[in-house]
């Protein structure tokens, strides 16, 4: 019917529908208002064209009631739109606790994803339908942006910090994945496909991937290789905090403050430990800045998280 010309993006995620509702309502409002104003102007233009017989007696052009009416009306309408936008937006902030967490790494000019089971893929992302998926995003170099139009989600990927985006795919299919933050020469090539598949198909797919170790397992290997265990292991002579269950736990610092050990904290503890010193310990931990790249950082984080009880999902935002 539409001759292969696309007019609207597919609605493939749990939020797509509600966002489209807002969009089309706004569109209707804009068209209605536009039509009204255009109609008004054309009407005047015809009725009061030079030389027409229309009656023109009247005062100087001003009317307080009118000014107030449209000012107040505009304010009210504006605030309704604002509120509606906010409600849908804050939804982003509260991912379900049982969400499946996939590590996404952006680098000039490709996306690299690692599933909890350790399966690695490039510019392709396979996800189960009907299950919440959190993609925790890190960047190796410049700012990128993770954008899946069909899901109506987007999140910039900023070097030096971890950001998150989550969604629930509602129907199987292959959807565009774009990088929408200009990131240099091949910005427009930096994309791929998100493949949403029924859970069992997803499980099967995971199975068929050449089975690497899980992300956490890799992290554990690193934890030894880098010598973390030398201090944090229970049989070490250095007094270093035991990292079991650290993630999401409040940590007292030596400056009498307490911080929640979220990803930001863990990342900083590794890259520059001197910044926040856990109370009662010597600041002897060396910085691993430059020794671990973003990919390895994600493994370490996965490992540290795996050390704590499962349901701490809410801590990662």
């Amino acid at each position: 019917m539409n001759f292969g010309i696309p007019f609207t993006p597919p609605e493939a995620s749990s939020i797509a529908g509600s966002i489209d509702t807002l969009f089309y309502t706004l569109l209707a409002f804009a068209i209605a208002l536009g039509a009204f104003l255009a109609g008004l102007v054309v009407f005047y233009a015809v009725k009061y064209r030079a030389g027409s017989k229309a009656d023109r007696t009247g005062e100087r052009g001003r009317s307080l009631p009118l000014e107030l009416t449209w000012t107040v009306a505009s304010i009210l309408i504006a605030f309704v739109i604002f509120g509606w936008g906010v409600v849908l937006f804050l939804h982003r902030e509260h991912p379900p606790l049982d969400a499946l967490e996939i590590a996404g790494l952006g680098k000039q000019w490709m996306w690299e994803f690692r599933h909890p089971g350790g399966q690695r893929e490039i510019n392709e992302l396979h996800i189960p339908v009907g299950k919440a998926v959190i993609v925790s995003l890190a960047s190796q170099d410049v700012i990128h942006s993770f954008f899946v139009p069909a899901f109506r989600v987007k999140q910039d990927v900023v070097p030096g910090r971890t950001t998150h985006v989550w969604f629930i795919a509602e129907e199987p299919g292959r959807f565009h994945l774009f990088c929408t933050q200009y990131c240099g020469t091949q910005h427009s090539e930096m994309g791929g496909w998100v493949t949403a598949m029924p859970p069992e198909a997803y499980a099967a797919w995971l199975g068929n991937q050449d089975h690497a170790e899980t992300l956490a397992a890799d992290g554990e290997r690193l934890f030894r290789a880098l010598g973390c265990s030398g201090c944090h292991g229970n049989s070490s002579k250095v007094r270093a905090p035991d990292l079991a269950g650290i993630f999401g736990r409040p940590v007292p610092l030596n400056n009498r403050q307490t911080v929640i050990a979220d990803e930001r904290y863990l990342r900083d503890s590794i890259l520059n430990p001197k910044k926040e010193i856990a109370a009662g310990y010597e600041p002897v931990m060396p910085s691993f800045d430059g020794l671990v790249d973003e990919g390895e950082m994600q493994m370490l984080l996965a490992y540290l998280k795996s050390l704590s009880a499962p349901a701490t999902g809410e801590a990662n935002q």
Partner: peptide, 11 residues
């Protein structure tokens, strides 16, 4: 050359 030896070199 940046040969600062205090805490939290980066910042």
């Amino acid at each position: 050359p940046f040969t600062y030896d205090g805490p939290d070199r980066v910042h």
